[in-house]
Computed example of a mutant assay.
Amino acid sequence: MLNRWIAAFTLATGCLALGACQTQVFLPAEMQAVQTPIAAYHAYERSDCATVERLTDEDALEVWKRNEMRHSMKLLYGFCREISGDLSAAEAIYRQLVDEAPSSFAADDAAERIRIFKLTTNDPGYARWAASALDRVDPSMVNRKPIERVPVRFPPLAESAGIEGYAVVEFGVSDQGTTKNPVVVDSNPPLLFDGASVRAVRRWRFERQTQTGPTSRQLIRLLFRPDGQIAAGEEPAASNPMSSPARAN
């Protein structure tokens, strides 16, 4: 369908340039409905929050129906507010998303950010604990065998836009094999894949320990590919300038 719209637009502009058309062909409204969110995601991928905010502010969103596209664009706006340090505005956007679209993928991500804000507010030591995530990793436990890895869901609009990125998650593994307190150490683009990664890792299961001991901490890198595939690896990726070395998640 999108290819037909592009072909129609190309034909129309070509005819106008040659003066060979008797009727004018307009760019379909549906083309904008697809291209605007994709443009916003590509802007976010290249750290251009000024463009993201122009495409996703309240006035721009008024023309959109209350669907996953609108919710995902609003989520991007919240991410940009959070990255800029305007946490109160970001939290207000996240709460609005949860209220108006509780069953959407964007609302799930928004709820994760609200959870972090609560943890940081209620426990002054939480941010410091999250920042020290790499220090807690036990190299001897990295190869502990997973027995169930719930698939990570690719954020739908990011997948449609062909966005590539990663999230590095540090988490605990109990003697029983359950994961505990996952925290995103690094991600690129920042925040975009954090929620999906943490929600999946919470449900992973590993082999039980034969001996009782403290909860081990380990790292996993989840690579989100432009073709919609997600791969898991053990080596953390390089830090992105837009993201902090470790974030509470």
Rank of each mutant, 00 (worst) to 15 (best):
135 D>A: 13
54 R>G: 11
58 E>I: 09
171 F>A: 02
229 Q>I: 12
193 F>G: 00
185 V>T: 11
118 K>E: 15
168 V>Q: 07
96 Q>L: 06
106 A>M: 03
36 T>Y: 04
6 I>G: 07
155 P>C: 02
235 E>D: 08
91 E>H: 04
27 L>G: 03
60 A>P: 06
86 D>Q: 04
241 P>M: 07
152 V>D: 00
245 P>I: 10
174 S>F: 06
141 M>H: 02
17 A>L: 13
114 I>L: 08
247 R>D: 02
119 L>P: 06
167 A>R: 14
75 L>P: 01
130 A>T: 15
70 R>K: 14
10 T>E: 13
12 A>T: 00
199 R>C: 00
126 Y>N: 13
208 R>G: 07
70 R>D: 00
6 I>V: 07
238 A>E: 15
242 M>D: 14
158 A>K: 02
68 E>R: 08
45 E>S: 14
160 S>F: 06
129 W>Y: 13
109 D>Y: 12
88 S>C: 00
122 N>K: 12
184 V>S: 10
144 R>A: 03
137 V>H: 03
173 V>M: 05
20 A>K: 09
25 V>Y: 02
12 A>N: 05
241 P>Y: 06
59 D>C: 07
6 I>D: 13
42 H>T: 15
206 F>W: 01
74 K>P: 00
116 I>M: 08
187 S>T: 14
78 G>D: 01
94 Y>Q: 07
126 Y>F: 08
125 G>L: 09
94 Y>S: 03
142 V>I: 10
156 P>W: 12
121 T>P: 04
123 D>Y: 14
45 E>V: 04
157 L>V: 07
245 P>Y: 09
2 L>Q: 12
235 E>L: 15
136 R>H: 11
126 Y>P: 07
118 K>T: 08
53 E>V: 12
